[in-house]
């Protein structure tokens, strides 16, 4: 019996999300009186694998099969299910990201395991096993009981702080019995943006809406983001108008983000926008309309014209940085 956590890597490296997952799994393992085993798929060095131990994994299993080079949902599901069964895992933890969403539900069917998807907290109780998750696009939460012997949890990004612990973990390289005929997905081309902070990874996000008035006015917003080490984002009308790229659209139908700080500039705060950003720890709103709904979701606000306020914020951050 153990808690199995799938730690995804990015070109052979783990990132904060991987450590959040392992720390979360270690804590769930502690709650259930067992230990966490981390599973890595792909070419990851031992030095990198060891890092998972620093966040509480007692055992690290590494699969390096070429058949798992690209994400094929069936092959990945077969591999993770096989490891879960060999390890007698009763709880499996994955990220609630593109990768996790493409595997966790398949594992659920294969192992007849109830899934608590998109949870942002530790289980509320172990017996019965109750998880807490967002529903109605952030307009409510649900307490859901998982009734199967094996349980699957997918964790929201940036919802659990990684905890470093002194720990010696063993690393085991394993093989799994995947049939090559199972791999039915062929990757023909990859287009990656490099060197840019990913919106979903950012701890601070500066986002602009229609109140920015023109695509030409983004200069100070981008400057503020750069100074804060933040990613830039936008509301749906802005991406629909082509003022900013679609990858920046945050909201219900765009990217769902949960940074520590979300600065909404010239965004009125329609329900659909808030659905994508309401899990942010702090929301700051800058809007010329004092009755804009964004102020109901924000902890800090300024009523005023973005074009006047942004340059002043840029200067203020520069002053703070100079100190």
């Amino acid at each position: 019996m153990s808690v199995l956590v799938f730690a995804e890597n990015w070109d052979g490296n783990f990132k904060k999300l991987s450590f959040e997952l392992v720390s979360y799994a270690a804590k769930v393992a502690e709650m259930t009186g067992t230990t966490a085993t981390a599973l890595s798929i792909g070419q990851v060095s031992d030095d990198e694998l060891k890092k998972l131990g620093n966040y509480g994994a007692k055992k690290i299993i590494s699969l390096k099969s070429d058949l798992l080079k690209n994400l094929d949902s069936q092959a990945y599901t077969a591999a993770i299910a096989e490891i879960a069964q060999n390890e007698g895992a009763k709880i499996i933890v994955l990220a609630n990201n593109n990768m996790g969403k493409s595997i966790a539900p398949r594992l659920s069917v294969r192992l007849k395991a109830a899934i608590g998807s998109g949870t942002n907290k530790l289980p509320q109780s172990i017996d019965p096993f109750v998880v807490y998750r967002k529903v109605y696009s952030g307009n409510a939460f649900a307490h859901v009981k998982l009734n199967s012997e094996i349980k699957i949890l997918t964790l929201m990004q940036n919802s659990f702080d990684p905890v470093e612990t002194a720990n010696e973990a063993s690393i085991e390289e394993r093989e799994v019995s995947i049939d090559g005929a199972l791999v039915k997905t062929q990757v023909k081309d990859v287009q990656k943006q490099t060197g840019k902070l990913l919106l979903t990874d950012a701890e601070i996000v500066v986002s602009g809406g229609r109140g920015m008035k023109s695509p030409d006015n983004w200069g100070p917003l981008v400057e503020l983001a750069d100074l804060l080490g933040a990613a830039t984002a936008c509301s749906r009308p802005v991406s629909d108008e082509g003022w900013r790229p679609h990858e920046e659209h945050t909201g219900q139908t765009g990217k769902i983000v949960a940074p520590n700080l979300y600065i909404a500039v010239g965004i009125s705060g329609a329900t659909q926008h808030l659905a994508g950003v309401s899990a942010s720890k702090y929301i700051v709103a800058i809007n010329s309309d004092k009755d804009a709904p964004i102020f109901e979701a924000a902890q800090y606000g300024i009523v005023g014209d973005a074009a006047k306020i942004l340059p002043q914020l840029v200067n203020a951050v520069k002053e703070v940085k100079a100190k």
Partner: peptide, 26 residues
């Protein structure tokens, strides 16, 4: 079903927004 809903919970009301004077964004 494999899961069972215990209850829904409305979102907790956020603390009231603290307004900063537009003349003093610092």
């Amino acid at each position: 079903p494999l899961t069972e809903l215990i209850e829904f919970e409305p979102p907790k009301p956020r603390a009231k927004c603290i307004f900063v004077d537009a003349e003093n964004p610092k």
